[in-house]
Design a protein around this nucleic acid. Sequence first.
DNA 1: AGATTTAGGTTAAACGTTTAACTAACTCTA
DNA 2: TAGAGTTAGTTAAACGTTTAACCTAAATCT
Lengths: 340, 340
Amino acid sequence: MSPTIKDVAKKAGVSIATVSLVIQNHARITTATKTKVLKAIKELNYHPSRSAKGLVTKTTGNIGFILTDDHFLQTEPFYTKIFLGTEFGTRGTNYYVLLATIARDFNSKDELPRFILERSVDGIIIAGKATPDFIERIELLDIPIVFIDYYPTSGNFFTVLIDNINGGIIATKHLVDLGHKEIGFIGGDLPHPSIYDRFAGYKQALEAGGIKFNKKNCVIDEDDPSRPNGYSAAKKLFAQNKKITAIFACNDAMAIGAMQYCTDNKIKIPNDVSLIGFDDVEADIFLNPPLTTIKVPKFELGTEAIHLIENVIKNKSYHNKKKILVPVELIIRNSTRELK
Amino acid sequence: MSPTIKDVAKKAGVSIATVSLVIQNHARITTATKTKVLKAIKELNYHPSRSAKGLVTKTTGNIGFILTDDHFLQTEPFYTKIFLGTEFGTRGTNYYVLLATIARDFNSKDELPRFILERSVDGIIIAGKATPDFIERIELLDIPIVFIDYYPTSGNFFTVLIDNINGGIIATKHLVDLGHKEIGFIGGDLPHPSIYDRFAGYKQALEAGGIKFNKKNCVIDEDDPSRPNGYSAAKKLFAQNKKITAIFACNDAMAIGAMQYCTDNKIKIPNDVSLIGFDDVEADIFLNPPLTTIKVPKFELGTEAIHLIENVIKNKSYHNKKKILVPVELIIRNSTRELK
DNA sequence: AGATTTAGGTTAAACGTTTAACTAACTCTA
DNA sequence: TAGAGTTAGTTAAACGTTTAACCTAAATCT
């Protein structure tokens, strides 16, 4: 049987209250007794019982991580990496993270994840999108929430975001710097803040480069930024303007779809058109040619989210830094080249 | 505040003990009072406090999932998928799964994962390899353990395994059926049971096909079944026997490395040599040509492990089915073809 | 010097369950 | 019809913490 606080108290010759106070390093304890107790703790290899502590403090030590289930089906483990980042972020803290998925189209009939119903978490991290229906239900419970790579436009939420605007800018600027003028943009799910911002960055960089924004160079009506939609978006784009020499895809999945379209239609990348994606997904280096892209530090998004939610839990009236912006980086590979 | 068992008891007009017994559906309770209590539970939306329950039963409701940290660095999320499978497996159970990683070279100086030290798990699932040092330390704690895709050769452990022997057989048989005679095998980390068994399957299928096993056709001295080692193994293999017309790589990572070697040396796949891998990793379909391989159901490995450990925890003297074998499947793509 | 404050610790109640031991009301059986 | 069994529920202790309230001795003040 594991040692309890009583064993420690007896060994150190103090009351259990003192042991408890030492653990929380309360100011009332002298360093003398503190070291005495700490010694006993070490010798017994004592670890407080999370259950007992939880029972009185009404905390669980768990953080829930919620993902829509379609990420399981996607080939790219984008959010899975973020999850791994949260796991890493909990080292040095006293938290564990529990994973759950919800339906992509979560609605009022669906059950909330088990750990929420059972109140087994002290806070929740929501990665990617979640339906308003879901967010509403969670908010009623008034559990601290942190979003990653998404946030409901109504309300002021704690969020860890990718610096999408800047990403859009440097991606587009890269193309402009290479001498391209007819630069296309293909995107899906434009209402999603991330996609929207990438598009905004595209427009800003165009303007900064003295290139007039042209609706003909954009295909933004796909409902999802997926591979097949990248394929069809590329098709539409070339139909709209056959003089396109460069494409900025709102993410790598669409870029891969677009690349496939080009291959199928004898459009050489990067000789005929340059292509840049966004995310820096693992498949990129296997592509032919390897894809130039904007790297999103997925792991870091997770660790940042943990730090943030820790603060929110600790200090419910935590106000500074509601939004944390994680920087991105241009990764030049072989799918873009100077316009001759 | 969440309702407690007292609230339910009051509402249903019974004692809290009765409520508790109803929840565990104990035989002593009549259906009449049972429905009465159940109704109160539903109306109050009552969920028992895991902490309180844990305090008295000395259980936590958590299962630990342990992975060596090098899987984070690998590009292929093989074990991550298995982890996702365990998460899925816990639906309908009362367990949560906690993830932790340990150093690949875990030794006596390293600390055990936090959830083990703090006794926050009722059982542990170990995926892939773990050092003897680690396993020894865990065993002392006498926490139920289930291995996935690995098991220490000494001792009789609960394990969920890939049917590697059969996988090795059908992979090799596929090559034999295509008319190949000079079939190479490249592998790394041969002591690992999974790799060892794939190699065993290779030999069995060769024999069954009336082909004599030839050491010259094998490169099995790489220490890791990684991509770069696949590259060098392919190099060695062709140096040993230039008449090779087909290669069975012990996993997709090595197959990818081998494919790279072939590309670099103008060896056409599948025209000059057929290549088959093992695992069915996501990159496979992006390769040129897409890789024929043996599919291992990663997700299912996870769910099976949860079912197994649940039984082990419930019934410490659980004896039947110490080892569960999960079947594999041949996936024919374009990297193998009939020998003309 | 006596009163008051402070420092450093202890006591005991409370958190929400489970479960062994108990009880009251029936039902048999001889 | 008395006694033994059975059935269905209750009582109360226990689990291992935290923390408000309390205590005592020493330090500080007037």
